[in-house]
Design a protein around this nucleic acid. Structure first.
Lengths: 155, 155
DNA sequence: TTCCTTTCTTAATCTACATTAATGCACAGG
DNA sequence: CCTGTGCATTAATGTAGATTAAGAAAGGAA
């Protein structure tokens, strides 16, 4: 277990790395993202203080995600120990959350995705640039801007 | 561990059930699906013989998915034992697959999704009605029909 | 401060997919 | 056998969101 201090923008893990670690965020804000074959960046998740960030790849396979710091951050790096005190209920909870996200992605409009983001990450809306929120939602910054305009008109 | 014989169309699990089970498919074909608040059906996965089918909900939470039989089927029903011989590497593998699917869903066109489906389930294309494939891909049957037409023209 | 780069927003146009509707087919029940 | 019901396909029209382009606002480095 190792403590790591990160500068904003610093990369913690690259796609293709083996033996990816688990990061417990003590302060700051991380993101993980994939880069498609067309070169587009898709943010997979955010992790503010108190959250866990990890690629879900098995340790014998290369990981799929990049992880970097959106703000200066402090994280604890842990090994993914296969055996041992692996918290099975926590793994199942992760599966459940992912499953819900898949279901959501299949049916939801840009507006609904934005509402879902707000519900999932209420504390970080102000700390993340719009274009990253758009990337997380899977829409363009222009589309997100339109969604926000419509929302603010209604209230 | 209990053996269950299912008729085509028979429902094995409903959304909202607690303590959902794990099903090992010995023969036939199952599907799991969600129904959105607008009443639309989204197929989450298929499970032909040899596959495992389960909702990923923790046992203390209601599950999200319906499971039913696309063909007459035989399945083994197992409890989700929290403790005990839970296969952690297998759980991690499931996470990894789900993560890849999320990334795919965020960036892929209807054509790409169809290619992905063919790669994932090569053995069942003939056994599943088009409209269910469309539902799995998150597009309408009409859109799938157009994709298939384009593909066949090219080759 | 000034300059430069990046981000956000607005608007015009384009495109993939949804919706609606009509038609042809297959198969199940009488 | 006829007749209904559901499925697949095609074509038309509609629409959410992508793309392109331009200008305004915000942040960093000298």
């Amino acid at each position: 277990m190792k403590k790591i201090a990160l500068k904003k923008g610093q990369i913690l893990q690259r796609k293709g790395d083996f033996n990816s670690k688990v990061y417990q965020v003590e302060g700051g804000l991380l993101r993980s993202y994939a880069i498609s074959d067309k070169g587009k960046e898709h943010i997979y998740m955010f992790a503010p203080e108190g959250w866990i960030m990890a690629d879900n790849a098995p340790p014998d396979e290369p990981c799929d995600l990049f992880i970097d710091a959106i703000e200066d951050s402090i994280v604890w790096q842990k090994e993914k120990d296969l055996q041992g005190e692996h918290d099975v209920p926590k793994l199942i909870k992760r599966l459940s959350v992912l499953q819900k996200r898949v279901i959501m992605l299949m049916g939801a409009s840009a507006l609904e995705r934005y509402e879902h983001f707000l519900a999932t990450y209420p504390e970080i809306v102000q700390r993340v640039p719009q274009k990253m929120i758009a990337s997380y939602l899977g829409v363009t910054p222009e589309a997100l801007s339109a969604v926000r305009r419509k929302r603010s008109q209604k209230e």
